[in-house]
Amino acid sequence: MAAEKFPIEAGHIMMFARAVGDPNPIYHDADAAADTEPGNVIAPPTFYQASAQYDPDYFLRPKIGEPWFGSGKEPTGVPPTRTGGDGGTGLHAEQRFEYFRHVNPGETLTLKARPGKTWERQGKRGGKLTFSENIVEYFDESGELVVRATGVGVRTEKVVESD
């Protein structure tokens, strides 16, 4: 579950930096960024997650003309659907990034996703917790690795609520 291509756009970086509350000019001002060590606008450390915008099947985005599991006037009752990978009705337990170089606005990264480790743990209320890693590697146009993102999702077994 990942986008295939992630075009890196200056406007998208600006909006993302605003959303995480980071006013650093290196994320939105090309002139100011020219005087920094990287020499141009770069992306904030967690920006790569926004590649979800380019995943045509991303299940946490309403699709035009399709039922959505969130509410309108009232809850729609549509069950959340999942297209695979971690996440879904599970929770995001952990996220790691390894950085190999900066990205530059104007380049397009190619993503390759693969499952990582899976493990289980007994939850406090008797349910089984299943953890699974999803590894997404972001490559540049010459095939060099730019960023590796490892997400860990956790899913709980359906437990009967005791209260």
Partner: peptide, 17 residues
Amino acid sequence: GRMVTDFVGDGRLTAYG
């Protein structure tokens, strides 16, 4: 992440999790 990059400098992270 803003706190981390404000501390170490722009574009200096090699890993963050």
